[in-house]
Amino acid sequence: MKNSEQQRLFNHYNPLEDRLGTDFFDALPKKPGIYKMYGRDGMLLYVGKAKNLRNRLFTYRRAKVGKSSRKTIRLIRMVHDIQYELCKNEKQALLRENKLIRQKQPEFNHAKKSPETYYFIHVKQEENYWTFKLNMRQYSEKEWHTYGAFKGHVVVRKALGALFRLLYIAEHKVDSAHHLPSILLKNLTPMNYSLNVSDEHIISTALLEKLFIGSSDELFEIMLSHFREQELLDKYIGKLLLEDFEALKRFYENCSQRNHQIVQHLDLDTHIIPQQKLDDYLIEMALD
């Protein structure tokens, strides 16, 4: 047999049935649960959930090169044992999956693995200044107003950078991006930023709080109306303004408004959601 043909056969070989046996697959239940995949040395490689364990694990049994992702093929070739646990329903399976991923940190799981990296936004109002801090730790100091936790590194950081620019432009009546501070033009949002705010600023702290809590997007309409009156949307800077509004809207819909819905749906007594609870709360809200 030629080397090229041997390589082709090897590439299309799925070892799961040989390693686990046909009896394993024949006995799989058509019930919800979680499954754990282990390597040759007993290391936990992956944790998954399924509404129907039999159907889900059969997709791994049938996986082939060219029809499945490289990650899946690589995982299958490393798996030497699969164990599963039955759960009462899909919701319980998702919650159990979340817990195991956080506890065991399997190599092939990426999502939900590091909830401690979900962001909190902190705001402090001082005389003529608003100070913003973005980090992964909840402040206990009373002078800081805390919002979050928010999931989504790119969404959160882009939105906060957009908000800083919009507030600065409104406060300083900027009509060109060239007049913005260089720190507000960088790709990465500053983790700490203080904005000078006059008594005539169009945005109040109450509107900011509603935005971060997710109870109202009134801030968007007020700022849009202001920029229309200033005829900024028709200038070159208008493109930047609209892009920033889109980034902020994405954050509102996917982060703060979603958190507000969780608080209302689960009747929580605070708008601050612990990092370790956020994924579980999302599951509970989606499946209730």
Rank of each mutant, 00 (worst) to 15 (best):
L160G: 04
K99W: 06
S176D: 14
D175V: 05
L195P: 00
Y46H: 11
T270R: 12
G21R: 01
M43S: 13
H145N: 12
L28Q: 03
T59G: 10
P115M: 09
D279T: 03
K67T: 07
R40K: 15
D288P: 02
E221F: 10
D217A: 13
L268Y: 03
F120T: 08
H271Q: 10
T270P: 05
I222F: 08
K64H: 09
G161Q: 01
L184D: 00
K151W: 10
N192I: 06
L207N: 01
Q261M: 11
Y236F: 08
H153S: 11
E85D: 10
I222C: 06
K124I: 10
N52H: 13
R56N: 09
K277P: 00
L240Y: 01
Y46D: 04
L211V: 01
L75A: 12
K31W: 05
I121V: 15
M223E: 03
Y252C: 06
S182D: 13
D217H: 04
D18Q: 09
H80C: 12
N89V: 11
M191K: 12
V79I: 14
N3Y: 03
S215A: 08
L86W: 08
I283A: 05
R40T: 12
V65F: 07
R62C: 06
A170G: 14
F25T: 01
Y281M: 14
R77S: 11
S215V: 01
K158T: 06
